[in-house]
């Protein structure tokens, strides 16, 4: 009996070890799998051409990813520019100013927002943001815009990353010792001066980590962006131009990818690119956040 129990424990522990190793190695498997599939494309063209060429003619075997990379950068950039100041200000409000009653109402809404699926953000973008840009914003700046633009993609993405940034920044701000703020206040600083010169500075690593995480989230977001940003394979030159981010490229063309040679390889290369960039960004921000946590604990 005793021996049976011990053997059972041993076997189960080995089994768990295998499962753990397997599930963690998904990261590696994804990387290897996607790279393996990109090899045919990489045999045909060099990294340099793939990343800098703007010629996207799958039927002729020309795969230049530059417009898609630029599309991704435009959309992500706009999203961060909109979301970061708003999120910082509201995080400061939530942690430093809001009476506890209001805070108790606010935080659940931020949580609810994070639960809404991407496709719903996309529908909202189509129904609300697109007409807003087409009829009310774009006419002030350009002659004509359908509304489907990198700006629309950026706005929708910005709203999607609100909860992520707000929750991390609030968490970081809450770890700043009250006494540090009191030190500044007791020297006669106003609350805002204390936020600007003390809290902000103290929270900078956390804010950077949150931003990096938000960027990587924005890079990979597919469906919501695809639905609103126009999907035109040219490099955008203004916020009202349509763009075609990498994830949208993959999602839109999976249907044909097996019927044109090398096309599947090109799309898997796009997925590989996304994967590598996002992996790097995630590791960076997670390491910053874990260090921060450990520093505060110790």
């Amino acid at each position: 009996m005793q021996r049976f129990r011990l053997i059972k424990d041993k076997i189960l522990s080995k089994l768990m070890l295998v499962l753990t190793v397997l599930s963690v190695s998904i990261v590696l498997l994804i990387g290897i799998g996607l790279y393996y599939k990109s090899v045919p494309l990489l045999h045909q063209s060099s990294w340099g051409t793939l990343l800098t060429s703007s010629e996207w003619k799958p039927l002729k075997g020309l795969f230049g990813f530059f417009p898609f990379i630029m599309g991704t950068l435009w959309v992500t950039g706009i999203a961060i520019i909109i979301a970061l100041p708003l999120c910082l200000l509201s995080s400061f409000y939530i942690t430093e100013y809001a009476p506890s009653r209001i805070r108790k109402i606010l935080v659940p809404f931020v949580n609810l927002l994070s639960g809404i699926p991407p496709v719903i953000f996309g529908v909202w973008g189509v129904l609300f943001i697109i007409p807003l840009i087409q009829n009310h914003i774009a006419p002030h700046f350009v002659e004509f815009s359908t509304g489907y633009s990198v700006l629309a993609g950026g706005i929708v993405l910005a709203v999607m990353i609100f909860p992520l940034v707000v929750s991390i920044v609030c968490e970081v701000l809450n770890t700043i010792p009250k006494e540090l703020k009191e030190a500044s206040l007791s020297l006669g600083a106003t609350k805002w001066e204390t936020i600007k010169k003390v809290s902000f500075r103290k929270a900078t690593p956390g804010i950077i980590a949150a931003t990096v995480l938000a960027i990587s989230r924005a890079f990979g977001e597919t469906i919501a962006v695809l639905m609103v940003c126009g999907n035109n394979a040219v490099v955008p030159h203004s916020v009202f131009d349509p763009g075609y981010p990498l994830p949208a490229l993959i999602a839109n063309n999976y249907g044909e990818m097996l019927s044109i040679p090398i096309y599947d390889s090109a799309l898997m290369f796009a997925a590989f690119l996304l994967f590598i960039i996002i992996l790097l960004f995630n590791i960076i921000s997670r390491v910053i956040l874990t260090r921060l946590e450990r520093k505060l604990a110790g």
């Binding site: 498997l29 799998g33 990979g220 994830p247 994967f275 996002i278 960004f281 590791i283 997670r286």
Partner: peptide
């Protein structure tokens, strides 16, 4: 254990389109 946690956090950050593409490969 902590490295494993970071690994799962990183996996959490990988976008679903990449999981879709990988699932397709499988």
């Amino acid at each position: 254990a902590n490295s494993l946690r970071i690994a799962f956090d990183v996996l959490f950050g990988i976008p679903s389109i990449v999981y879709g593409a990988f699932g397709f490969l499988i």
